[in-house]
Nucleic acid binder design. Structure first.
Lengths: 118, 118
DNA sequence: CAGGATCCACAGGGATACTG
DNA sequence: CAGTATCCCTGTGGATCCTG
């Protein structure tokens, strides 16, 4: 069957899948994390914080996060333009999760390094 | 430059990216979640718990989780074969956060449903 | 029962150039 | 400064059939 888009009951029971669709992908969690740690960041600052991201991906990711109400975009009508991004209230609820993920990841990295030393 | 594979300093500072490589993807978090809630599951039970997964993806995902030491695979040499999967100690450290994510996702789903009712 | 093996589609992401 | 616009490639995941 081609009705793969119609499995609402499954999604109903699985907030995990829903959540991952919103903060999954290569950059979303990192952006939320950086935004949170710095309180507010401009577009250019974000490109410098994530050196491996392209403007296309940064813009696209920011738009998706904004559409999902996880971040707030504040635009100043100046020349040159100025735009500030920050974590929204809803997005802030995810910070504890990302923080612990961050700590867990660092710990695993440490263990890997130690294992390679032997 | 083509040296995109060589950005270890970046990864060093970002446990988030590392963690997402391990539990990212379409099924990993869900499998960990289901395994945890049921304590232990057989291969066939997993296919029934995730009706939208194919054998290829289930096997592949289980292998990756096993290689990353997040789950344990216990094989019984019987006929017919019997294999049980469970969350490992390391993987168990991720459960509280997946749970958090799960609750957050469910809450968001509720809000969406309410918003659509109006 | 618990996979393995193929072949294939598509979306996510990358490189580069341009703009208000 | 903060993006758009294109073109392109790879990896993730899907469909289907086969096996110890």
């Amino acid at each position: 069957m081609k009705n793969k888009r119609e499995i609402p009951e499954q999604i109903q029971n699985c907030g995990v899948e829903y959540a991952f669709k919103r903060i999954g992908g290569k950059y979303k969690a990192r952006i939320l994390w950086y935004l949170h740690s710095k309180a507010v960041l401009r577009y250019g600052e974000l490109t410098r914080t994530l050196p491996d991201i392209t403007t296309k991906m940064l813009t696209q990711t920011l738009r998706e996060l904004e559409d999902d109400k996880l971040i707030t975009r504040k635009m100043y009508h100046e020349v040159p333009p100025k735009v500030e991004y920050s974590v929204s209230e809803t997005g802030r609820e995810l910070i504890p999760f990302i923080e612990h993920l961050h700590n867990w990841g660092k710990k695993q990295l440490q263990n890997e390094l130690l294992a390679n030393k032997e």
